[in-house]
């Protein structure tokens, strides 16, 4: 009798059984941005490191000039920056930025050229440059570096990349 009663009791539990009803939706893919920069050789002397993070030019007995771009490798607009180091500092700064691609034949800047200032720190000349405005994706900073006939090496190194400010992404 107890067994029967227990069985009956067990079957009466769903008396207040509830019906479930609902709906759901799934968003599209939400993807995080990638932020970075890399050097891309343009013309002349000098070489880009394998990881794209630096570019160097070395002068031995003769003067040499090289052209290189720092590329915004981010998936979002960003401000790029770089540092310049030189073993010795003779005369003017060995590195300059042009607002337009350099004329690699004449060495002239078709736009506005800006010398990258260097300062001697612990026996090494060091300077830096940052873009004032956000560069679009794949945008470039056009650089030229020269070394004189004196044994010298100029190295450009990619520095901080500052992406666009955070904001409302509801429609973009």
């Amino acid at each position: 009798m107890l067994v029967v009663a227990a069985m009956i009791g067990g079957t009466t539990t769903p008396a207040r059984a509830a019906w479930q009803a609902g709906a759901s939706v799934v968003s599209g893919s939400l993807t995080m941005a990638q932020v970075g920069s890399r050097f891309a050789a343009v013309a002349g002397r000098g070489a880009v490191a394998a990881n794209g993070a630096s570019w160097s030019i070395t002068g031995l007995a003769t003067a040499a000039t090289g052209y290189v771009d720092l590329v915004n490798a981010s998936t979002v607009p960003a401000r790029l920056s770089l540092t310049v180091t030189a073993g010795t500092l003779v005369g003017v700064s060995p590195a300059a930025v042009c607002s337009q691609p350099w004329n690699t034949t004449t060495g002239a800047c078709p736009g506005t050229a800006t010398q990258i200032g260097l300062a001697m720190v612990l026996g090494t000349s060091t300077g830096g440059h940052s873009t004032e405005a956000l560069l679009p994706v794949a945008g470039r900073v056009h650089l030229k570096a020269s070394v004189t006939g004196v044994l010298n090496t100029v190295t450009l190194t990619a520095a901080d990349v500052v992406p666009r400010p955070a904001g409302d992404r509801t429609t973009s």
Binding site: S27, G28, S29, L30, M32, A33, R164, A166, D168, T171
Partner: peptide, 18 residues
Amino acid sequence: GAFSAAVANLLPNDYFHR
């Protein structure tokens, strides 16, 4: 808007409404 719309290139502190 559409809830199913994708959002690419999110950066920290980015937000979006649905």
